[in-house]
Design a protein around this nucleic acid. Structure first.
Length: 710
RNA sequence: AGCGCGGUGGGGUAGCUAGGUUGGCCCACAGGGCUCAUAACCCUGGGAUCGGUGGUUCGAAUCCACCCCGCGCUACCA
């Protein structure tokens, strides 16, 4: 931190292109980067803030296949969509681009060749799978099959999620292509390229050690990688979608997505420079050591920003700046659950904008930003924060000041004469808040900054209340009331300046109502001694800045999108119960329809004979036991009449021992045995999979154990 | 199982890496005030054995040990 800072380069983790992102993605990298950038620009600093979509990798290809579109087109569309959403959120990047650009191709290939020249690229022959039917190589998750270790049948080509053993696609028993679902594969041997992280370990270690002030999240994850020792990582893939490898013998391969993605930060800066008409402009941000580089990321991204990307730059040895600060955020949960794109849990950025103004989201999620540990998005807290902090405290102070000025001083900023102790105190508090908050934000402490700002807003209300200008007016002490209101108007201006990075749209509104012509984006927190001149006309018809959120609204939203935090609210507000019941029914219906249309129903018919192959029988659960080392699995002993069967079921998350004991269930008796987590499973129970809910099928009436099911 | 994070009044949290006046803040709750304002704002109050046990210390929410509970990760999901 001792270095001289001339300018700032700010990066947000590049959002992956295949889906619309949720609030969790927003809070961990996109939004804080914007707030920081806005704050610095207000201070008059030279700032370059870049971001863009991460376009390559197999998930994009899979999504494109599902959508029935060429990858290129699909990715282009998703890029446009995401870009538009972020603009609506007020994210003020100097450029929001993507990684599928000419610039990124060039820079990625350039850095790779440097690494190659410097001896940090290793070649190794490995075996990979190829689907003869699709005529496609099957790296990583393009293939599933049975795990050779635990016999789990849906192990992926990179790892078995059941026993967590790291796999190679060729290890899988009965490997299947996920595109065509067929086992028409063959093993191919080919050479691949590896980034020799081990050779760069000392350099990375030293760099990490020189940054003890980084968030604990960043350091602990990075250090655990170091502790395990850095192994070579494969950076090539037998795919078409990606950046081609510029090396003989590898020209039919592309770079693995994690290699080219962070290089996007550089290439997007280059694109920006071109747009500025000065193609070399990016160099002062990336190559001048007096630039301060900050990465904003979620905790999953730490290895790439604290290990592999710096290793890439260090190994290329081409004068690129490494990050000076890596701000890693933990997870934002949604109503105590994990945000999940695949399971559609949580609020997504496009939906959010349809529900409430961007500033509402910006404010609340930064207020609860997971800076030190995971936090929860709760509808009830969302409403409380918006209503209390924004509407009551901030918005209402501004509104009462403006209204008073309009009514009693015919919209003129009244003169301030003979400032007393309290007048001076509140103005001093404003300047002090600016300085203190500035210090916090320079340390990237977002929540602490916000608390300081809010504290000042409360102080403003306290001041108004204490000075009672309405009383002064009635008692003909007009001059005194004038001084109070003048002071309040100065505070309104200060509040707008202070809150601007967090809620830019609303801050701008305040400036408009104050009828100020100066640029809000240029007002430094550390220069809050500027004053609106006496006699300045303010806007005549100010509206409340923030509309409050009704209780009913969030109850409905929680019902629609899920959320337990409103349960307590409902208990206390029985009149909302009816609404709940009706809505619930409706949602249920909708959900069922969705499931039906979404679920892939097979069109392939089977004969009755085929069906008869299944030996389904009723049994009673007589024993239940947790399986050590597995948090989803239970070992069940089921009495099926002729014998007691041991089966393993992945239901531990939803079922307790007591709920299961003595219940009759249906099991598949002639399923081939499997060993799961070291425990034999001789059959499978039937249950409806409505993730995350699991509902076990039971016979409606009691029947003898062993009864056949058909 | 390993790793990470957490367990603070009814809810949400700060503090805890540098241990020391009455454990801070927001919401909710109770009482009061005010009426300029979006039924807002202001004041006062009740309420916590700081997950448990043991230890270090003159002194621990804060350090150490063990244990219990929750969550997450171990997958290129922020």
């Amino acid at each position: 931190m001792a270095k001289k800072i001339k300018r700032y380069l700010i990066t947000s983790a590049l959002p992956y292109v295949n889906t619309v992102k949720h609030l969790g993605n927003l809070v961990s990298s996109l939004l804080p980067a914007d707030i920081y950038a806005r704050y610095l620009r207000q201070r008059g600093e030279e700032v370059l803030a870049v971001c863009g979509t991460d376009d390559h990798g197999t998930p994009a290809e899979v999504s494109a296949l599902e959508a029935g579109m060429p990858v290129e087109e699909f990715v282009e569309q998703m890029y446009m969509k995401q870009k538009e959403i972020y603009e609506q959120f007020g994210l003020s990047y100097d450029l929001f681009s993507r990684t599928h650009t000419k610039e990124n191709f060039e820079m990625t290939q350039h850095l790779f060749l440097k690494l190659y020249e410097n001896g940090f690229i290793k070649e190794k022959e490995i075996q990979t799978l190829y689907c003869k039917n699709c005529k496609r190589n099957l790296p990583d998750r393009f293939v599933i099959g049975t795990c050779p270790y635990c016999k789990y049948e849906h192990a992926r080509g990179d790892q078995c999620e059941n026993c967590s053993k790291v796999l190679d696609g060729v290890d899988l028993i009965n490997p299947k292509c996920i595109i065509c679902g067929k086992n028409d594969t063959e093993i191919k041997t080919s050479k691949h390229l590896f980034l020799d992280l081990g050779g760069l370990e000392e350099e990375i270690k030293a760099w990490l050690n020189s940054h003890k002030d980084w968030p604990k999240t960043t350091l602990s994850i990075a250090n655990s990688w170091i502790k395990e020792g850095l192994k070579p990582r494969c950076i090539s893939r037998d795919l078409k979608w990606g950046i081609p490898i510029p090396l003989d013998g590898y020209r039919d391969k592309v770079f693995y997505v994690w290699f080219d993605a962070p290089i996007g930060y550089i290439s997007i800066s280059m694109e920006w420079a071109k747009q500025q008409g000065n193609p070399d402009l990016w160099k002062k941000f990336w190559k001048d050591p007096e630039t301060y580089v900050v990465n904003f990321i979620g905790k999953d991204n730490v290895p790439f920003h604290a290990i592999t990307f710096p290793a890439t730059l260090a190994g290329a040895d081409d004068g690129f700046n490494l990050a000076n600060y890596i701000k890693a955020f933990q997870w934002l949960n949604y109503e105590k659950q994990k945000f999940s794109s695949s399971q559609k849990i949580g609020i997504f950025t496009d939906t959010a904008l349809q529900l409430y103004p961007a500033d509402y989201w910006r404010y609340y999620i930064m207020k609860i930003a997971p800076e030190r540990h995971d936090t929860d998005f709760l509808w009830t807290e969302f409403r409380d924060s918006i209503n209390t902090d924004l509407a009551d405290v901030l918005g209402n102070f501004v509104h009462r000041t403006l209204t008073f000025t309009n009514r009693y001083f015919s919209s003129d900023v009244p003169p301030a004469k003979n400032l007393d102790k309290e007048d001076k105190a509140i103005l001093a508090k404003m300047e002090e808040t600016g300085k203190k908050a500035s210090k916090e934000l320079q340390k990237l402490e977002f929540q602490r900054t916000l608390l300081l700002l809010l504290d000042f807003a409360r102080e403003c209300n306290r001041y108004f209340q204490l000075k009672k200008p309405w009383e002064d007016w009635k008692n003909k002490k007009h001059e005194r009331a004038a001084t109070t209101l003048n002071t309040c108007l100065q505070c309104c201006r200060g509040l707008a300046v202070l809150f601007a990075p967090f809620i830019p749209f609303s801050a701008e509104k305040i400036f408009t109502y104050l009828n100020l012509s100066e640029k809000l984006g240029k007002q430094s927190w550390e220069a809050l001694d500027k004053r609106i001149p006496e006699g300045h006309k303010i806007c005549k018809n100010p509206e409340p800045i923030f509309r409050k959120i009704e209780l009913e609204e969030i109850v409905e939203l929680a019902l629609e999108w899920g959320g337990d935090s409103v349960k307590e609210v409902l208990k206390q507000n029985p009149h909302l119960q009816d609404k709940l019941a009706k809505k619930k029914e409706q949602t249920k219906k909708e959900k069922t329809t969705i499931k039906k249309s979404e679920g892939i129903m097979t069109t392939e018919q089977i004969s009755f004979k085929d069906f008869q192959k299944l030996d389904l029988r009723v049994g009673t659960i007589v024993e239940v036991e947790a399986i050590k080392g597995a948090n989803k699995l239970l070992k069940l002993i089921v009495d099926i009449g002729t014998e007691k069967r041991q089966i393993v079921a992945g239901i531990a998350k939803r079922y307790e021992k007591d709920e299961l004991l003595g219940k009759q269930i249906v099991i598949v008796c002639n399923l081939e045995p499997a060993t799961i987590r070291g425990v034999q499973s001789n059959g499978m129970l039937l249950a409806a999979d409505a993730a995350p809910e699991i509902s076990i099928l039971v016979p409606l009436r009691k029947v003898p154990n062993g009864s056949k099911v058909r």
